[in-house]
Design a protein around this nucleic acid. Structure first.
Length: 622
RNA sequence: GGACCCGUGGUGUAGCGGCCCAACAUGCCAGCCUGUCACGCUGGAGAUCGCCGGUUCGAAUCCGGUCGGGUCCGCCA
């Protein structure tokens, strides 16, 4: 009479299943021993699997053999127990666990596996454990509740994504992992070919070109949970392999893609974390210029966003008296401020730290004005501004007593960027953001290109296939009309792309664009990017050829699943939502990857190590 | 490529020039205990302080290097 269709000789129920209504029935459970409480003649075992914990009681008087087994059991042993489900004696129920109303009164107990004492506490979800140790014994870390529940959340996230896409007529298509390099700006991982010695595959940085080919193929709504690979330095939010929700749609404009994605994202969050409110629907939209101007960021955290205040208007009539400000303004720089609420009492040391931080972010310095509770202003440059000058700044920013005003004077992009980053940091340090709220926003109309001074050409800021706004089409040209003579003054620098990013709580969650499908525009865009016809063919041959066979207008987006899962799990580190992540140096501490290849593997590929400058060649192993 | 932080019994921490062949908690082992649920009680084992070198009469403690981990800048969309 198993209740669970997954019942097996090992178990009729999971360790989280039994309730008071099951009292009187016979049940068999298998799991890990979470804890043993040996009272002498009476032993309590907390039996754990990923579904929950059930208390098992073994009474020497009732089941001497089982009692003998239970007395030999240790934490993390795997056992099977069979007995009667019974309501606990009144007053001994445990409200902390779902099965706390009952216990299993055991008739028989069998040890399935013994276990060494684990290297860290598996039964204490709050125990802090060195991350390197967790990674080395990841299978034990995942046995712990916090990791297990995050992987579960991630699984539900992906499940919801799949369901919603299928419900909307999307086709899930797998694309290969051994492909030709699809330049996205990052370094490729390379896989040498044995059958074609001397040639290599590249692992996809994203399925970008393949999904565009699927559009030409008529798969008008495509999606994939795609593994992507980028050989760049790691961060808390960047791993060498990561997962994207990749999607592409035909016969769409920007609004259509954004509308679907927004609907999908809301629905996914609703199904996955219904308890977390979404701050604003529809998601606020900002143009790139507006986002930078207002927040100094193209992924503002709108839960608290400190808006930038332009101070230039204070000194149109007379100079500020502080030479850095005046010279910055005279040389087309900007002087802008943010207000950090409640930090007016910051110590000199804290302010110095902020200054250091600002310099690290690329500013030349930081000016601060700290307002105490009485309204008196301290400032690093009070002697230049004078009391009146300082108070004008404070008044202009709208700061109140007890606040701290931070001012950056620099080139426009530096000023905005540094203040944006300082704001983010202060926001999290001051706890201004409601940790429970999900705050999405869209940023669009990104500049098409960024001038690459080193190579003297225009670089696509996102995808080289990103389309240009219709109204900016004629800007895709050079200043003197000669596509081979590029200059930072080209009108192309002002062209804006049909490019949109979606941000969540200050993180870039994803980005996409409506692509260029017209050959003439594509040729012009590529020319600006300094691509020769041959270079284009070499890199994008398949897409360019396909585009000669009737490409539909199309656009799409890619969202970072790891980041999404991390944010939904209240984590700032994507390793916490990946089963087997790598360390900052790209190593897997459990598998001990990477490792030197075997000599025969190298021989078959016709490879040998020659080493790197300053580093000797490691030798393959026999 | 660079800056910074961390590395002490199984785990998490304390100690930061002699009082330390290292302390505390927890875990582990043994014994006792029939209503516990972070069970309790009694007893016990367990680290030469990541590694190498140096300074010093003396180093876990200071210095240099190195390895491992992390945060950040560069890089990366």
């Amino acid at each position: 009479m198993p209740i669970d269709p997954l019942a097996t000789p090992y178990r009729t129920h999971t360790c989280g299943a039994l309730r008071a209504s099951d009292a009187g029935t016979t049940a068999r459970l298998s799991g890990w021993v979470n804890r043993r409480r040996d009272q002498g003649g009476l032993i309590f075992l907390d039996l754990r699997d990923r579904h929950g914990i059930t208390q098992v009681v073994i009474d020497r008087a009732d089941a001497p053999d089982a009692h003998d087994t239970a007395s030999r059991v240790r934490n993390e042993y795997v056992i099977t127990v069979e007995g009667t489900v019974a309501r606990r004696i009144a007053g001994t129920e445990n409200a902390k666990i779902a099965t706390g109303a009952i216990e299993l009164q055991t008739r028989s107990a069998t040890i399935l596996s013994e276990a060494k004492t684990p290297p860290f506490y598996i039964n204490d979800p709050d125990a802090t454990v060195d991350e390197a140790l967790r990674l080395r014994y990841r299978y034990l870390d995942i046995r712990r509740e916090p990791m297990a529940s995050r992987l579960l959340l991630r699984s539900r996230l992906v499940q919801a994504i799949r369901e919603i896409h299928h419900d909307h007529g999307f086709v899930e298509v797998e694309t290969p992992n051994l492909i030709k390099s699809t330049p996205e700006g990052a370094r490729d991982f390379i896989v040498p070919s044995r059958l074609q010695p001397g040639s290599v595959y590249a692992l996809p940085q994203s399925p970008q070109q393949l999904k565009q080919l699927l559009m030409v193929a008529g798969i008008d709504r495509y999606f994939q949970i795609a593994r992507c690979f980028r050989d760049e330095d790691l961060r808390g939010d960047r791993q060498p392999e990561f997962t994207q929700l990749d999607l592409e749609m035909s016969f769409v404009d920007e609004d259509a893609v954004m509308a679907f994605v927004e609907h999908m994202v809301i629905e996914v969050c609703r199904r996955t974390t219904p308890e977390r409110p979404i701050q604003e629907e529809p998601f606020p939209r900002f143009t790139y210029d507006e986002a930078i101007e207002r927040f100094g960021s193209d992924k503002p955290d709108l839960r608290f966003a400190m808006e930038l205040v332009d101070l230039a208007s204070l000194w149109t009539a007379a100079p500020s008296g502080f030479r850095v400000f005046d010279e910055t303004l005279a040389s087309e720089g900007r002087v802008m401020a943010i207000v950090a609420p409640g930090l007016g009492g910051a110590s000199r040391k804290e302010l110095d730290e902020l200054t250091e931080r600002a310099k690290r972010f690329g500013a030349k310095g930081l000016v601060w004005l700290a307002i105490d509770d009485t309204g008196a202003v301290r400032s690093s440059i009070l002697k230049f501004l004078g009391d009146a000058g300082a108070e004008r700044i404070v008044a202009h920013t709208g700061a109140s007593p007890g606040d701290l005003v931070l001012v950056i004077a620099d080139a426009p992009d530096v000023t905005a960027d540094v203040l944006g980053r300082l704001g983010d940091e202060l926001g999290s340090r001051l706890g201004l953001a409601d940790p429970n709220v999900l705050s999405f926003c869209w940023i669009n109309r990104f500049p098409m290109y960024k001038w690459d001074a080193e190579h003297e050409r225009w670089d696509a800021t996102h995808n080289p296939f990103s389309g240009v706004l219709a109204e900016d089409e004629e800007l895709l040209t050079t200043i003197d009309g000669d596509p081979s003579r590029l200059s930072p003054k080209d009108p192309a620098g002002r062209a804006r792309a049909m490019q949109y990013d979606i941000a969540l709580n200050g993180w870039e969650l994803g980005g996409g664009s409506v692509r260029i499908h017209r050959r003439d525009l594509l040729a012009r865009s590529f020319a600006l990017q300094g691509q020769t016809d041959e270079g284009m063919k070499e890199k994008f041959g398949a897409v360019l050829e396909a585009f000669e066979y009737g490409p539909p207008p199309h656009g799409g987006i890619a969202l970072g699943i790891d980041r999404w899962a991390a944010l939904l799990s209240h984590q700032t580190n994507i390793r916490e939502v990946m089963a087997f992540p790598k360390t900052q140096s790209g190593g897997d501490l459990m598998l001990e990857a990477p490792s030197p290849p075997e000599e025969t593997q190298f021989a078959e590929l016709g490879l040998r190590f020659v080493g790197l400058p300053g580093r000797p060649a490691p030798q393959p192993v026999e």
